[in-house]
Structures are given as C-alpha cells and as structure tokens.
C-alpha cells in the first residue's frame, strides 16, 4: 500500500472557531475515498489547506511523499481539485479556459486530453461558448474539466454534484470511476450519502473540525448493530405494544404494518414473538443500516438516536 496523502496533526482556527482540530488522516494511492460531514465540519477547509487555498496553523500534509508547503509546486502538479464554489474566467471560452489551465500545469498542446474531457463531461458542443453563456450545471462541468486537464494522480471533488442534474451526475461518475480504475486516487466530499455509499471504498466522517471515524464503507455500515423489521399483517391489535414492550416499535394501523428495531442477536426472539401473534403475516422485510444511519449516528445529526 502506498500513501497518496498523509495528513498529520492539522489545526486551523478562524478567531475563536476551531475549524480543524488535530486532523490525522491517510488516503491510499488508488482508492476512492469519501470525506463526509455536515456543513461546517471542516471538509472544505481541509481541502483548501491541501490545495494551498487556506493557510494552516500547524501540522503538515504530504502528497505522494512531498510536503505541501516546502514542495508545493510538486504537490500541486499531482492534485486536481474541483472547488465547491463555481468560479470562471469571464474573458475566455471553454476551450481557451482549458488550454490556459493546461499551461498553468506545464502542458502545451493538450488538445487531445481537452477533447476527451469535453466529451466525457458533455461539453463538446459548448467548447466555443463563453462562461456567461453556460448554465449553472455547465459551469460546474467546466469547473470539473479544469481540474482534470493535467491528468492529476489525485483528484479531489468537493461537492461536485451540488445542484446539478442527474445526467451530469451519471456522466461524471462514469468518467471518475474510469479514472479510478486507471489508478487515480479519488477524494470525494458530498452531501449525497447514497453517492458515497455507491462509489467509495473507504470513508472518513468529520464533525466539528475532527475526524470522528475512518473505515471501509462495509465496516462502517456493519458498525451499527441494528436491523429494521417491517411486517405487514392482516390486522394490527392493541397487544402489539405489550408483546414488543422492550423494543422500539412503530405501528401503522392504517396500512396494517408495524416496524421493530432489533439487534442481530435479538432477531430470532423477535421472529418467535411475531409468530406467536394472533395475526396472519402478509409480508416481511428486514433492512440493514445504510451509510446515512452511520453518518447520523456519528455526527449526532439524528437527534441522538441509537
């Protein structure tokens, strides 16, 4: 395993606000890493420090073994960062912007790569358009294209699909998955947890300036010992509350359904209790926790449930 990014004791504060509090994190080469957290958790600040947009107070970050302060020119060459905020150079059209951007990263005559990216992101027919002629979604695509023109080893996508249509999401993820398979390291921050759940190998969860958990997606999901048992019956009776008094129960009389939250070792007992009811079971569904549940638990956004 080779380390792509090593974040070592990073601290950053804005006045009284401790935006990043002793962040330690390793991202492996070639992995698809998700960085999740609620608004204000410090994700963008951390990415800003990585890319040189934000000055850190203390700590260090290395990118492919190079220090982001001492060897910042080398580390920036390895990084392709898509910032969260849409920004564009008003003087140049899409193709000119990408040519200039290529030059900024030391590449001349980059037309082949530019055409590939324009095609992958559905921007080919907008290549000669000025940024003011582009819709919000198209501007977002241009932002992503700019980060990819120099074929960086590590691609950082900070909320790349915020406010964009499904079509872009699909074409973007298709292209990013292809890049990841080619060996590129991908770091993704997103509010769409289902995206992270589908795409990421490992996930780091941040809250209030701290990394509260880093693990593989599967381990994170399995860390919640909870199943949701949904049972549809021919009739609901008043004694349900009594039978399942020691469980979290939610009865829907109208639809003749009830839900019980159980841990794995309670499953057998609960199934026996359901069998003992004076009712006919019409349907039953057992669902495992999702990444969203883990996220809510770790960031306590779920109102302290679980």
């Amino acid at each position: 395993m080779t380390v792509a990014i090593k974040i070592d004791s990073i601290n950053k504060s804005y006045g009284e606000l401790q935006a990043l509090d002793d962040i330690n994190l390793e991202i492996r080469k070639g992995e698809f890493f998700g960085l999740l957290g609620p608004n204000g958790a410090g994700k963008s600040t951390l990415i800003g420090i990585l890319g040189g947009l934000v000055n850190k107070d203390s700590g260090s970050i290395t990118v492919l073994g190079k220090d982001t302060v001492k060897d910042y020119r080398e580390t920036k060459l390895s990084l392709g960062i898509v910032p969260q905020e849409i920004a564009f150079d008003p003087y140049f059209n899409v193709r000119e912007t990408l040519k200039i951007q290529s030059g900024y990263f030391g590449i001349r005559d980059n037309d082949e790569k530019i055409d590939e990216i324009l095609d992958a992101l559905g921007l080919t027919d907008k290549a000669e358009k000025g940024p003011r002629e582009l819709s919000g979604g198209m501007k977002r695509r241009l932002l992503i294209a700019k980060a990819l023109v120099h074929d960086p080893e590590i691609i950082v996508l900070d909320e790349p699909t915020a406010g964009v249509d499904v079509e872009l999401r699909n074409s973007l993820w298709e292209y990013v998955i292809k890049l990841n398979k080619e060996g590129k390291t991908i770091i993704l921050t997103t509010h769409y947890l289902e995206e992270a759940e589908t795409l990421c190998d490992r996930i780091g969860i941040m809250n209030k300036g701290k990394v509260v958990k880093v693990d593989t997606k599967d381990n994170l999901i399995n860390s919640i010992d909870r199943k949701l048992l949904k049972v549809k019956v021919d009739k609901t009776s008043d004694d349900l509350g009594e039978v399942f008094a020691s469980y979290k129960l939610d009865v829907d009389d109208k639809n003749k359904e009830f839900e019980i939250e159980v841990s794995k070792n309670q499953l057998d007992k609960v199934l026996s209790l359901i069998n003992s009811l004076d009712t006919t079971i019409l349907d039953m569904n057992i669902s495992s926790p999702r990444l969203e549940d883990v996220f809510l638990k770790l960031t306590q956004l779920g109102g302290g449930q679980d």
Partner: peptide
C-alpha cells in the same frame, strides 16, 4: 480584482506557480 470577484483567483492558487 476581477479574478477575486469572479472567484477564478483559485485557478492561480491551485496551480503550481512560484
């Protein structure tokens, strides 16, 4: 000032300029 206003100053900050 235009780069700061439009936000594309980040292009310069993210690029490997000395």
């Amino acid at each position: 000032i235009v780069a700061k206003y439009q936000g594309n100053i980040v292009d310069l900050l993210l690029a490997p300029f000395s």
